[in-house]
């Protein structure tokens, strides 16, 4: 079974139509040209893949305690939520 990191890298690469090798943990959303609607779609795909709910408000990402500025932060948030919602 794919690790969280592998699954998330695949989702981001598919959404942005890029080679998964270019999606690194340290990559920022800006590095990957991920705009707000892209991120909303990526979060949706992750929620479907992991069967979880990610609290995220595009108006104020910090308010929901889910800061998703880098790929590593996305992976960390998903691991945490998977444990909480298991």
């Amino acid at each position: 079974m794919a690790t969280t990191q592998e699954a998330i890298v695949q989702i981001i690469a598919k959404q942005m139509s890029v080679d998964p090798a270019t999606v690194k943990p340290e990559s920022t959303m800006d590095d990957l040209s991920i705009e707000s609607l892209d991120l909303v779609e990526i979060i949706f795909a992750i929620e479907e893949e992991f069967d979880i709910s990610i609290p995220y408000n595009a108006n104020d990402p910090s308010a929901t305690g889910t800061d998703l500025n880098t790929v590593a932060e996305v992976i960390e948030a998903v691991d945490k939520i998977v444990q909480e919602q298991a």
């Binding site: 909303v40 979060i43 995220y56 408000n57 595009a58 108006n59 104020d60 308010a63």
Partner: peptide
């Protein structure tokens, strides 16, 4: 769309959430 306010609608206020 992730644009809905959690508490109420606060247009132009710094702590608005949607």
């Amino acid at each position: 769309l992730r644009v809905m306010a959690a508490d109420t609608c606060r247009p132009f206020s710094k702590d608005r959430t949607g």
